[in-house]
Design a protein around this nucleic acid. Sequence first.
DNA 1: GGGAATGTTCACTA
DNA 2: CTAGTGAACATTCC
Length: 280
Amino acid sequence: MKTISGEVWYISIMPEGPSIKILQEKLDPFKHHKILEAKGYAKGFDPHILKNQTITDIKTWGKHLLICFHDFAIRIHMGLFGSYKINEHGKRNASLHMGFKDDGEVNFYISNVKLIEEPLDEVYDWTADLMNPKFSIKKAEEKLLAKPDRMICDVLLDQDVFAGSGNIVKNEALFRAKIHPENKVGDIPPRKLTQLIKEAITFCDEFYKWRKVGKLDEHLQAYEQEECPRNHIPLHKADLGKTKRHCYFCNKCQILYKSNPSTKKYDKAKSRAKTSSPSQ
DNA sequence: GGGAATGTTCACTA
DNA sequence: CTAGTGAACATTCC
């Protein structure tokens, strides 16, 4: 029998979908084990309900870690500062600590914990999760085209469309698909949109493999990079879209299919000036 | 010591 | 009512 207290894991902060998938794997040995003690300061959730409960399953949806019990599940979201320790604990108070009958422990820090009493299939659309084999390219295409005015850099952070995608996935997928982050969805040729979705899936897969061996950073092509690996010219860095998150992009190989927003504003101002006639 | 960071929600304002 | 803004969370790394 596999021991649940044999290995110690620690990871810090800011996980995207692939990192949550790795967490799920590390927690797998705790399946079918009973919680003896549960405590923590997580708001809107009483840890004591976990006492004497046995974990039935561990799932993920995007950046959500889902620990399942017989009648309910809990959702753990690590946010920007979240971290976890398995089979060890720090000095700080955990937002959720679980101690197991078989002498293992799991601790989440600065994580958001929420009780889910509805069946998970009613709460989660598994076809929207980039890390799930059920992810539907077709549905993602439909969701993209339903809102053609949105900036693509924003949509890549929309968890309803690309659950699990974060700022790294966003930047790398756009770079790989050679699409400029400021494009409006409707201006991008449909074939390129499909390619972008596929690049996001592929990159998540590679992210997962590289992160597992601690070699993600050396494989990044755009995120926090200085230079375009294709053209060897400096990458641009700007906070774009409604989300105003960091975008790293190459103006040469990442295509902007139509005029950029600043030009648009200028055009709008011009046409307004034209239509509002001076004879009033 | 200060600023920034792979995220999200919520309260407030215009 | 809605869109936009900023705070909150409170860590770790440089």
